[in-house]
Simulated scan of single mutants.
Amino acid sequence: MYVAIRELHTARGRFAMITVVVALLGVLVAFLGGLTAGLARQNISAVQALPGTHVVVADDGAPASFDRSQLTDAQVDATMRADRAALPVGISRGTVEAEGRVLPVAVFGMPPEATPDAVRREHGTIRLSAAAADSLGVRAGDRVTVGAMAFTVDVDHADRWYSHTPVAYVALADWRLVNPQSGAATVVTTASSPAVGGTVALTRDRALSAIGSYDSEHRSLQLMTVMLFAISALVVGSFFVVWTMQRIGDIATLKALGAATRTLVVDALGQAALVLGLGVTVGTGLAAAVGVAVGGAVPFEVSASTTLLPATLLIVLGLAGSVVALRFLITTDPLTALNAAR
């Protein structure tokens, strides 16, 4: 690593430039990863929190959709007979009103057995997240209305979302009163897959696709992330290719003096690793700090999967891109140094 460190010190401007570029790529990758995870959480966290391993929805011949699913009493009863752990859940959209303030919410009707998501009382209680309660300016014990029904607020500190809308939990019986045209339930959660007539049982992962726009949104963001990783590898690889071609004379001289090709390869990869490690660490740290700072206003999630994993992939792909430059290093003829000296 002696030659690599000397080159980093001698060509400070060039390596500072590529380090800044790598840091910016690290910011973009980490921020996009955090935004993707944050948007996903605001889309599916309430469904992920449902009990059971499968979700039974109405089968209307089209792809499963929570928005269209309306289960009848007979279907709910048959599913519950087939699986004693089955729990009916109502899902609808509505608005919560409190002293002139209106907040769109996803109303989840939960049976009393659906701990911990059941409301404390069977009737007349609505559980709002702390963020939803703050938006409405209400506290525990205040009165709000959903449709034509009045509810007593019970504040929940869990941050649950459904299709980018905060979730309000009410008793299933109250949900049926608020949504008389939505059937006996929207879905039934089960510990197995007892799909009765007119229904289809989905695994938890497949059920996420039944949330409107989730697949298209998530896949678009993932495609952007993949393209950004590919661009990062090309940018880093191009820099080291150009840098290696500019120093072919020096490489030939080192070989003529007896330097082993293997030593020069390790030296070049170590140089790339130093630049990538520094740039990615700075970029990822900056993105995480910004994400924490704006987390309340932007759906951003800071975790190992949105920081450490993308940073590691970025370093690995950058090293893979720099491997292309090794071809010029390996094939350089020591006689080139003699020719260059003439």
Rank of each mutant, 00 (worst) to 15 (best):
A4S: 15
R6I: 10
H9T: 09
A11Q: 12
A11K: 09
G13V: 06
V20Q: 00
V20N: 01
A23V: 01
L28R: 00
A30Q: 01
A30T: 02
F31E: 02
G34N: 07
L35Q: 07
T36K: 14
G38K: 08
I44F: 11
V47N: 03
Q48F: 13
Q48W: 12
G52I: 10
T53R: 13
V55L: 08
V57K: 14
A58Y: 12
D60V: 06
A64T: 13
A64E: 12
F66T: 02
S69R: 09
D73W: 15
T79M: 00
T79G: 03
R81H: 10
R81W: 09
L87A: 10
G90I: 11
S92C: 07
G94I: 02
R101G: 12
V105T: 09
A106V: 04
F108T: 01
F108W: 10
G109C: 10
G109R: 02
P112G: 03
T115R: 15
D117M: 12
E122C: 00
E122Y: 13
H123K: 02
I126T: 09
L128T: 01
S129C: 04
A131T: 14
A132D: 05
A133C: 03
A133G: 10
S135H: 04
S135T: 09
L136C: 02
L136F: 00
G137S: 05
R139C: 02
V146Q: 10
G147S: 05
A148G: 04
M149R: 09
F151H: 07
T152D: 09
V155Q: 14
H157S: 14
A158Q: 11
R160W: 11
Y162F: 15
Y162L: 04
P166G: 01
V167Q: 08
Y169Q: 08
L172T: 03
L172N: 12
D174S: 12
D174F: 12
P180K: 01
G183D: 02
V187K: 09
V187A: 15
T189M: 13
T190K: 04
P194F: 05
T199V: 03
T199G: 05
A201Y: 12
D205R: 14
R206K: 08
R206E: 15
A207F: 13
L208G: 03
L208M: 15
S213I: 09
D215W: 10
D215A: 06
E217S: 14
R219C: 06
Q222L: 14
L228F: 15
A233D: 03
A233S: 07
F239S: 00
F240M: 13
V242T: 10
M245F: 13
M245G: 00
I251A: 15
L254N: 04
L257F: 07
G258S: 11
G258F: 07
A259L: 07
A260Y: 06
V265C: 07
V265Y: 11
V266L: 15
G270W: 04
A273G: 01
L274C: 08
G277M: 02
G277D: 00
G285H: 01
G285A: 03
A287V: 04
A287Q: 03
A289H: 01
V290Q: 09
A297N: 11
A297G: 05
V298H: 07
P299Y: 12
P299M: 14
E301P: 00
E301C: 01
A304R: 14
S305A: 15
P310Q: 05
L314A: 08
L317I: 00
G318S: 01
A320C: 14
S322M: 00
A325I: 04
T331I: 09
